[in-house]
Amino acid sequence: MIVADRKQIPELRDMIKDFDRVLLVGCGTCVTVCLSGGEREVGIIGSALRMSLKLIGRGDTVVDECTIERQCDDAFIDALAERVQEYDAVISFGCGVGVQALAERFPKTPMFPGLNTQFMGLLESQGVWAEKCAGCGRCRLGEFMGLCPIARCSKQIFNGPCGGSHDGKCEVNDDINCVWQEIIDRARELGMLDKLEELAQPQDWSTYRDGGPRKVVREDQCIAGMGPDAEEGVQ
């Protein structure tokens, strides 16, 4: 799941200072589950934003709310198409993908982010989410007992632990578990400690962001004239 948290009300208020009618759009998927951008949270922020505007003498600004099932899918964005025309600007409470999906779909409407998108992660305990995947493009979880040293080790080292590991915690912060301690504990449980004797090779980072923005292409799924090989303007 993509994990995000909300921006502060004054920041949102400043974003929309030039607009009179603003629509807040929530997303019913990841950000609903991580309690940042679903229907309830958008309701709370909408109410707070209206009051905040009124307190600075801009009470006539219209701030309405709605939530769609999923912002990262054009089929669901369709439901918004008519409504968006009635507003000067939109604040999307989807993740960064959702904001950009709406921006692409509505080129004439100024689009703003309501959330700070954080990472791909999991619920650790009620109200606590932890990063689990960095989306490096070359998954090596099989080498590390199913625990990722890229997303979960502060130094991203492949042959750990480092000297900063103490009592199962990371030297950066005691709130961070040393993932290398966890990898070794799990290998011991699985009777696979010998696998960690092998030297882990350096990562080929060309599949990560270092290679520029990425795309996944499935040729067999591409529609004729619309794939990456299509001539410009053929669509």
Binding site: I9, P10, S52, L55, I56
Partner: peptide, 8 residues
């Protein structure tokens, strides 16, 4: 917290 944020 929210009231404080908006200045109430």
């Amino acid at each position: 917290g929210i009231l404080e944020e908006i200045g109430l």
